[in-house]
Amino acid sequence: MSHDQNGASAPNAEADFAEAMKELARGERTASALESHLDSLEKKIEELLAQAEKAEKDMQTGASTSEKPSSQGQPESS
C-alpha cells in the first residue's frame, strides 16, 4: 500500500466512498419502498381477517337462528 503514503489512491478512496454513499442511499430508498408495501399488505390482511371474523359470526348466528326442529332426525333423500 505504498500508494496510500504518497496520496495517489486518495481520489480512488473518495470515489469509492461516494459510490458507497450512493448505494447506501439507494438501499435506504428500497427499504422505505418495501416498508410501505408491507404496511399496505398488513392493512389488507387485517381487513380480510376482520371480514372473515364477521362472516364467521354471521354464519354462526344465522345457523343458530335458522335451525328448524322438523328437519332434525329426518334422513336425507337421495
Rank of each mutant, 00 (worst) to 15 (best):
Lys68Leu: 12
Ser64Gly: 02
Pro69Asn: 02
Ser77His: 13
Ala31Asp: 00
Ala18Lys: 02
Ile45Met: 06
Arg26Ile: 03
Asp4Glu: 13
Glu19Val: 13
Ala33Pro: 01
Ala55Phe: 06
Glu28Asp: 04
Glu35Pro: 03
Ser36Phe: 06
Lys44Met: 07
Ala18Gln: 01
Ala18Pro: 00
Gly27Met: 02
Glu42Trp: 11
Gly7Ile: 08
Leu24Ile: 08
Leu38Tyr: 03
Ser77Trp: 07
Gln74His: 12
Glu76Leu: 13
Lys57Asp: 03
Ser36Gln: 09
Lys44Phe: 04
Pro69Thr: 02
Ser40Leu: 04
Ser78Asn: 15
Gln74Ile: 14
Ala50Thr: 05
Ser77Cys: 07
Asp39Met: 05
Gln72Phe: 12
Lys43Thr: 02
Glu56Thr: 10
Glu67Ile: 10
Ser66Ala: 01
Phe17Thr: 13
Ala8Cys: 08
Glu53Asp: 09
Gly73Ala: 01
Thr65Val: 09
Glu76Asp: 12
Ala63His: 05
Leu38Asn: 09
Ala50Lys: 03
Thr61Leu: 10
Ser40Met: 04
Gln51Leu: 14
Met59Ser: 13
Asp16Arg: 09
Met59His: 12
Asp16Gly: 13
Asp58Val: 07
Arg29Gly: 07
Thr30Ala: 11
Glu46Pro: 11
Glu19Asp: 14
Met59Cys: 06
Ser9Gly: 07
His37Pro: 02
Pro11Met: 06
Met21Cys: 14
Lys54Arg: 12
Asp4Pro: 05
Arg26Trp: 00
Gln74Ala: 12
Thr65His: 11
Glu23Ser: 05
Ala33Asn: 02
Ala31Gln: 00
Asp39Leu: 05
Pro75Cys: 02
Asp16Ala: 15
Glu42Ile: 15
Gly73Tyr: 00
Phe17Gln: 14
Glu19Met: 15
Lys68Glu: 11
Ser2Ile: 09
Ser32Ala: 15
Lys22Leu: 00
Pro11Arg: 04
Ala50Glu: 03
Gln60Phe: 02
Gly73Met: 00
Ser66Arg: 00
Gly73Asp: 01
Leu48Thr: 04
Ala25Gly: 10
Ala55Glu: 14
Ala50Leu: 05
Ser70Pro: 08
Leu49Glu: 13
Leu49Phe: 11
Glu56Gly: 09
Lys68Met: 11
Thr65Cys: 09
Ala25Cys: 08
Glu67Thr: 06
Lys54Leu: 09
Gly62Phe: 03
Ser64Asp: 08
Ser71Met: 13
Ser40Phe: 05
Ala15Ile: 04
Thr65Ser: 15
Thr30Arg: 05
Pro69Ser: 05
Glu67Ser: 07
Ala20Glu: 14
Ile45Trp: 03
Glu53Pro: 04
Lys54Tyr: 08
Ala31Tyr: 00
